[in-house]
Every structure is written in structure tokens, then in C-alpha cells.
Amino acid sequence: MAIDWFTVGAQMINFLILIWLLKKFLYRPIIKAMASREQGLVDRLQGVETQMSEAEQLKKRYEVSLQQLDSDKDNILAEARRQAETDRTLQLQSLNDEMQLKKHQFSEEMHQQQQELGGVINRVIAEKTLQLGGKILSGLADQSLEQQIVEHFLQNLAKLPDAEQSVLQQALSQDDTATIISRFPLNETQRSKIRSRVDQLAPVREMVFELDNRLICGITLEAGGRSWEWNIERYLAELEVELLKPLE
């Protein structure tokens, strides 16, 4: 078979043209599209890797935060427990103190009430005793108890030791006024007896008789800033002690 050299040349030219056309319309656009897609995939992969690394970092940060939160929670719980324990101890202490205080107050009140009760009992007993004593003395000697008290007071004055008597005399002479304080009003006989007795010790310019309800049963001489008295408080005190002993 012969070769047609014109056809050979024409075919070579055709082939070169075909190369150029396919390069323009086939290879270049396809390679470009594939390269773009590849670049897109690479970019997307890089984006994904970036997001993954960010997510990893975020995860690590959250884990650290969670650990911190757990640690904080434990600390807070421990602190709360410690605080609660402290509060409980303090409240117990406070309640204990309050209880002790109440107990003390109660004891004080009890003691005060006992004392008040003792006082009341003293007064009642004294009054009743006086009434009883008065009745007995009146029945026995036909004398009032008051008379007996005055007599007893005067006797006591007379029985004072010498040193005391000199003190009394000195007091009476220093002061112009001698005061007799009694619970009950003294009659004139009693007053003159007292006055004469005092005058025996030392002459007194003026003698004042006063009443004082606080005296349970007795009589007091005041002169020169000092006082001499007799009353049944001492006896009552002994009686009170005896009475209150079972109560304490």
C-alpha cells in the first residue's frame, strides 16, 4: 500500500491542530477543575483540622474547667462542712452559755425569792411572835409587850459595859438632842422613864420620840451620830436561819 505524502503532511497538521484544540477545550479545563476541587478539598481538610484542633483545645479547656469546678465544689463543700461544724459548735456553746446564764439567773431568782420569802416569814413570824409574846406577856404580868421592851431596853442600857457607857455619855453630852425611835407609840409613862434614865447618864436638853415601821420590834437611842438599840431582829435572824435551812 502506497503512502500518500500529501495526506501524511495534512494528517500531521490535523493532528497538531487536534492537540492544540484538545489542550484548550479538554485537558486544561479538566485539570483546572480537578486542581480547584483538590485545592477545595485541601482547604476544607485544613479547615476541618483547624476546627478539630480548636475543638480539642476547647475540650481541654472544658476539662480543666470541669476539674477546677470539681475541685472548687469539693473545697466549697469542705468549707461549708467546716463552717457548719463551727456554727454548730458556736451555737452549742452559745446555748450552753445561755443555759448556764438562765440557770444562774434562776438560781439568783430562787435565792432572791428565798430571801424575800425569808423576809416575809421573818416579818410574819415576828409579828405573830410579837402578838403571841404580847398576849403572853399581857396575860402573865398584865403589862404590854411594849412596856417589857422598854424595860428591857433600859436594863440593857444600864448593863452596858463601862467603856460603852462612857461612849454613850460622851455622845449624849455632845449632842443636845437625843432621839428615841420605836415601832409603836410610847405612852407618857414610858417616855418619862426613858427620859429619866437618859438623864441619869447625861443631861439632855431635848428628847425626840419618833416612830419607824421598819423596826420589827424594838427601840433605838440615837445621839451624837451613834445609836444603841434593842430589837428582836437578832432572834428573828436565828429563827430565819433555822426556818430556811430546810429550804436550801
Partner: peptide, 19 residues
């Protein structure tokens, strides 16, 4: 054949999609 190849390529590659 050239027309078929070039024409076909042209028709296909004028609307290439990357994605």
C-alpha cells in the same frame, strides 16, 4: 473524528463544576 472530540469536549467542559 476531530469535530467529535473537540465538539464533545467543548460541550462538556463549558459547564464544569468544581464541587
Amino acid at each position: 473524528v476531530m469535530a467529535l472530540l473537540v465538539g464533545g469536549s467543548f460541550l462538556i467542559t463549558r459547564r464544569l463544576s468544581v464541587d
